[in-house]
């Protein structure tokens, strides 16, 4: 009888525990920004962790991945991401992957290019150079300078640097040469983005990067279409001694068979003001750089 009473009491109390826990979870939503607001600096945690800095860094990095994942699916607000990555890399400065991961995510997903650059720089200073993925750090550093800062010389310098480390791909010297030639062609970023896709397991990031590649391919297409139309306009001018009012006049006169289809759903037109062919898409559909207009134009030679 006593045992039955005890078991009943145990079941009753366990149910109480479960219900209370469920009520707390449902009614009192924990605001994670509240605790991240008070996230101590890496230097402080380094002392507080005694000799267990690396364990704490591992924990923090897993939390950082979780933070990115939860916000990528909801508000895409990553206010504390750079601070979290900074704590991880201060606690364990030799840990290569957080630099690589942060370097990509901060620039491409969060839009904090300067944070990405300083994180990658910190990585290059701390990660041992014989690490099998070390070359990724100067490589992504170069990407940021080429893609966001339009600084092709710095980009070329860091691509050349990454060729010196083991496991770096064989196409890098060619890429560096292209950047040194100051081609300023956005499609030079495609190999960088393809490498980023290979290096990450995060699906959201992979899709985002794949979209960027599609954009860049489209940009390349638009460039070549405009170049073709410019030649046609030049030819039209040499015959009729005037510029065409509309591009379809090039078709009527038999200079071209048709106006190429715009890859991003826009159209091409001839601007009499500049005497150039232009695209109706002035910017790409996705964020690349607020300061950079992607209007593409070519002037007839």
């Amino acid at each position: 009888m006593r045992n039955i009473l005890l078991i009943t009491l145990l079941i009753f109390l366990s149910s109480g525990v479960h219900l209370a826990s469920k009520h707390i979870d449902d009614s009192f939503k924990f605001d994670e920004t509240e605790y991240l607001l008070y996230l101590p600096s890496g230097k402080f945690l380094q002392g507080a962790a005694l000799c267990y800095d690396e364990m704490l860094a591992d924990f923090m990095f897993i939390k950082t991945i979780g933070y990115l994942g939860s916000h990528a699916e909801t508000d895409r607000n990553y206010t504390y991401l750079d601070q979290m990555l900074n704590v991880v890399t201060t606690l364990d400065p030799f840990y290569e992957f957080p630099y690589e991961f942060g370097g990509i995510v901060l620039a491409t997903e969060v839009g904090k290019v300067d944070s990405s650059i300083s994180l990658l720089k910190k990585g290059m200073e701390n990660v041992p150079q014989n690490h099998e993925r070390y070359w990724y750090l100067p490589f992504y550093y170069a990407f940021n300078f080429m893609y966001y800062k339009n600084d092709y010389l710095t980009a070329a310098k860091y691509i050349e640097l990454s060729t010196k480390y083991k496991n770096s791909p064989s196409y890098l010297p060619l890429l560096a040469a292209r950047l040194r030639a100051n081609t300023e062609s956005p499609e030079a970023a495609i190999p960088f983005l393809q490498e980023m896709i290979k290096s990450t397991d995060n699906e959201t990031l992979k899709n985002n990067l794949a979209l960027r590649i599609d954009e860049l391919k489209a940009v390349k297409q638009v460039k070549s279409d405009i170049q073709l139309l410019e030649y046609a306009v030049k030819y039209y001018y040499s015959i009729y001694n005037k510029y065409p009012e509309y591009l379809w006049e090039l078709i009527i006169t038999g200079i071209i068979a048709k106006v190429p289809e715009h890859p991003m759903g826009g159209s091409y037109y001839f601007s009499h003001q500049d005497k150039t062919v232009k695209s109706t898409f002035k910017t790409l559909p996705l964020y690349i750089d607020k300061t950079r207009s992607l209007e593409i134009k070519a002037t007839p030679k």
């Binding site: 364990m55 860094a57 591992d58 924990f59 990095f61 897993i62 991945i65 992957f97 990450t200």
Partner: peptide, 15 residues
């Protein structure tokens, strides 16, 4: 934890 992270699970196990 090694399974939760994105790379180098052995590093976490060693730590």
């Amino acid at each position: 934890l090694g399974n939760l992270t994105l790379a180098e699970p052995v590093k976490i196990i060693k730590d």
